[in-house]
Amino acid sequence: MPLLDWARTQWDRALGALAVLIGAILLLVGWMKISDTGFVSEQLPYLASAGLGGVFLLGLGGMLWLSADLRDQWRELRGIRARLDATADLAE
């Protein structure tokens, strides 16, 4: 399956996308639950769990996605440097 293959090779992006998705769902569920009640003492647990948890997961997802981009850049630069080293070795 293409999606599974993508998730296997791009595990960091897959995890990032999953974290963002779960975070968004948590925020949505938290908002709905908080809207259901008018008591602040009943609303605060949802804010502490779904609200803060959703924000945390959104941040984590963004971090994982950006990390994947940095990994790609790192690999490409290392590849260029390895080729430069190889040509230097030939020159020696």
Binding site: S41, L44, P45, L52, V55, F56
Partner: peptide
């Protein structure tokens, strides 16, 4: 923080635990 907020109905106590959760985030 979540357990602390859920464990009580006292607003002062709850806001304290919520602050704890925010600090964790």
């Amino acid at each position: 923080g979540w357990l602390g907020v859920s464990d009580t109905v006292d607003l002062d106590s709850q806001t304290g635990w919520l602050g704890f959760g925010i600090a964790a985030v």
